[in-house]
């Protein structure tokens, strides 16, 4: 028997109505998330990874049109929920950790008041207890202060407390939660998110452009390119045996894989306009592309332990590697 996933997204499309026509930002993205699992979404700017999070929260701007054949959270369909039902889910069922803690808080309101907006009349002792759980005991005495009086790491932990602890949601969406933090503080915050996952059994969708962070925290990962999920695999599988040419190129472009003075193998070309191409979006930059790739959109197929959206996934991955037994 398979248990129902915590979150199930099927064929999610998001279009933005702009002056220059409809721009597809997310195209046919499908994935599932189990409780206690960290699913990473990695991709470059404009690949649509943050838009996926906004779509799950149903917080897309008015110019966006979202469609999905299914978007279930704990068995109920997020797409068909009323505004009132969504308010009951946001923050309570699904918590969101934003990218920039500083701009997610009001700069002109003391923290205590902002906490009250979210926590209502929760007793002070409970608030202190929550702060303590994210290592912010020292901040409890300074709550009359304004956001600028705290460090980025402190504010981010405060937002994690609000998102993950205050209302005990079962799903946490993290949008580049450590991008603006220093390395040692980033390590603290990542540790905190993983501890909360372990302790509360949270499911986490973790969006990042940093493959280092993804490798350290995720159980499974999806690679996005031009609005498409081009590859999804368990974390070890993706790094050991990338199958999509884009994933391979991305891993080859990591500075940490080179020595001093060596030149990095870059991905030629740009992703601009790739979301409007008729065939595979990566075809113009792909070293293995054939005529078929430029004309026909590849379907998602299962190869080994991975889901890959490529016409020639095995060729791409297995040139010098033993073939995987069929799954």
């Amino acid at each position: 028997m398979t248990t129902e996933p915590l979150l199930s997204v099927r064929d999610l499309d998001v279009l933005f109505d702009t002056a220059r026509g409809r721009v597809p930002a997310v195209r046919g993205v499908s994935f599932e998330l189990a409780a206690g699992e960290v699913f990473g979404l990695v991709g470059e700017s404009g690949s649509g990874k943050s838009t996926v999070l906004s779509a799950i929260m149903r917080l897309l701007p008015g110019v966006a049109v979202a469609n999905a054949s299914q978007m279930n959270f704990q068995g109920s369909d997020l797409m068909s929920m009323s505004a009132g039902q969504l308010r009951g889910i946001r923050g309570t069922g699904i918590g969101l950790i934003p990218q920039r803690p500083m701009t997610s808080l009001s700069p002109v309101t003391p923290l205590r008041k902002q906490l009250r907006w979210f926590l209502g009349d929760m007793p002070q002792s409970e608030i202190v207890d929550l702060l303590d759980q994210v290592g912010l005991r020292a901040v409890a005495e300074r709550l009359d202060g304004y956001p600028f009086e705290f460090s980025g790491g402190q504010l981010q932990r405060l937002l994690i407390m609000l998102a993950a602890l205050a209302r005990r949601p079962s799903l946490l969406l993290a949008d580049e939660p450590t991008t603006t933090l220093d390395a040692t503080v980033q390590a603290q915050v990542l540790r905190l998110i993983l501890d909360l996952r372990d302790r509360l059994g949270l499911g986490v969708v973790f969006v990042s452009h940093d493959l280092g962070v993804i490798a350290q925290v995720c159980d499974r990962v999806g690679v996005m390119y031009a609005g498409r999920l081009v590859e999804a695999a368990p974390i070890g599988e993706l790094f050991d045996n990338p199958r999509h040419p884009y994933t391979q190129a991305l891993l080859r472009a990591l500075p940490s894989r080179y020595k001093r003075g060596e030149r990095i193998k870059v991905i030629e070309g740009t992703a601009a306009g790739a979301n409007r191409l008729p065939g595979c979006a990566f075809a113009p930059r792909c070293p293995r592309a054939e005529a078929m790739c430029r004309e026909q959109e590849p379907e998602t197929r299962s190869v080994g332990g991975a889901l890959v959206r490529c016409h020639f996934p095995e060729d791409a991955a297995g040139a010098n590697k033993p073939k995987e037994a069929a799954a």
Partner: peptide
């Protein structure tokens, strides 16, 4: 040590 290594085999 706090720099995340892009290698899931070397989880810190």
């Amino acid at each position: 040590d706090s720099v995340p290594v892009p290698d899931p085999r070397r989880r810190k």
